[in-house]
Amino acid sequence: MTFPALLARLDALLQQRRPAYYATLNPPATAAELAAFEAEFELTLPAELRWWFGWHNGQQGFESFVQNNCLQSLGSAAETMRVNLELLEAGDFVPNWWQPGWVPFLENGGGDHVCVDLAGTFTGHAGQIMEHWHDWEARSVLFPDLTTWLQAVVQVYETAGEGGQELTDEHMEEIELEHPANFPKDFEAGD
């Protein structure tokens, strides 16, 4: 299934199985907002990430979208990147604590993020999905790309909501995504 088709499926599932949560989602990011983000950080977002922010530009509040993470807005992602790039440039980080090509799209509200890694840190595979912890060295590559991650999210929403019951914040915090073979791949900052 293509990324836009997966997004459409997710949108329908959220409306059916989490209508109150769906009402907290922000409008899409505009083309101008996406262009400004790319210009500020001197990067080109992959099509999937542009579609992601163009679907909903984050959410209001910190209710869990999946696994205790909420949708990060483009503005919040930019602020995360600014802070971490400033600390990186000041020499405050060990290697791979933060990289300029990490674009956060999920956050837990406590300073930790799930990012699209545009550089392929650790593996050489640009576009992989990885965890960034603000106070822990673990840097797990969770999925090979955003499409594979979204397939896992759609699958969990389909199976968790079987029977028509509404899914709660607590359901989504405890959900485990099914990883493809050989994932996650565990690394540490400083390596």
Rank of each mutant, 00 (worst) to 15 (best):
P4C: 08
L6I: 02
L7A: 07
L7P: 02
A12V: 06
L14H: 00
Q15T: 01
Q15Y: 02
R17K: 14
R17F: 02
R18W: 00
R18P: 00
A20G: 09
A20C: 08
Y22H: 14
A23G: 09
A23V: 09
L25I: 03
L25T: 04
N26H: 13
N26D: 12
P28M: 04
P28W: 06
A29W: 13
E33G: 11
A36N: 10
F37A: 03
E38K: 12
E40K: 13
E40T: 15
F41I: 02
F41G: 07
E42V: 12
E42G: 01
L43D: 06
A47V: 11
R50A: 14
W51A: 13
W51V: 01
F53Q: 08
N57C: 08
G58P: 10
G61W: 00
S64P: 05
Q67N: 07
Q67W: 01
Q67D: 08
N68E: 15
N69T: 04
C70D: 03
L71D: 01
Q72A: 15
Q72Y: 06
S73N: 11
G75R: 14
S76T: 12
S76Y: 05
A78T: 11
M81N: 10
V83E: 11
L85K: 07
E86F: 04
L88V: 07
L88N: 03
E89K: 03
A90Q: 13
A90T: 05
G91F: 05
G91Q: 09
D92R: 03
F93A: 04
V94S: 13
P95Y: 09
N96Y: 14
W97S: 12
P100K: 11
W102A: 04
V103M: 03
F105G: 10
L106R: 04
E107W: 11
E107K: 08
G109S: 04
G110V: 06
V116D: 01
V116T: 06
A119G: 15
G120W: 11
F122M: 05
Q128K: 08
I129L: 07
E131I: 13
W133Q: 12
W133G: 03
E137V: 09
A138L: 14
S140W: 07
P144D: 03
D145P: 08
D145I: 07
T148P: 07
T148L: 01
W149Q: 05
W149Y: 10
A152E: 01
A152L: 02
V154I: 06
Y157P: 04
Y157G: 02
A160V: 00
G161F: 06
E162Y: 05
G163V: 09
G163C: 10
L167P: 11
T168G: 12
E173S: 13
E173K: 15
E173V: 14
E176C: 01
E176A: 11
L177P: 04
H179E: 08
H179F: 15
P184K: 10
D186I: 02
F187V: 08
G190L: 11
